[in-house]
Amino acid sequence: MTQVFILSSLSLMFIGLYGVLTRKNLLKIIIALNIIETGINLLLVSFGYIDHGITPILTSQESILNLNKMVDPVPQAIVLTSIVIGLGTTAFALALAIRYKITHNSISINASEEEEGRGI
């Protein structure tokens, strides 16, 4: 069961990395970045997963008794933060992409940096 999670998150990361490396369009690159982020989050949570584990939330007395079957909460805490970082990166990158479109009037990554193109 954990093999499926780890392998799928690894493949997501590789696909995302491939996307970042090869795509020319900026929005595509940012989408690929998000795919890597999702892949990493899945990978982290799958590190904490144990087979037939139960959610680490105490609902009643007997859930306290079988604490050792609970899934590891720490990767989930990390992933909570990392999702928001992913959101932050995407928001900032998208704003820059829009500004890039205005100044370079093309959203391909190898638009030349020199003076042509109307800049605001």
């Binding site: 970042v20 490396l21 990554i109 190898n110 030349s112 940096e113």
Partner: peptide
């Protein structure tokens, strides 16, 4: 260094 778009490629 001026074009700088091969950044991630060189990173990998």
């Amino acid at each position: 260094y001026k074009r700088g778009e091969g950044a991630v490629l060189l990173f990998s």
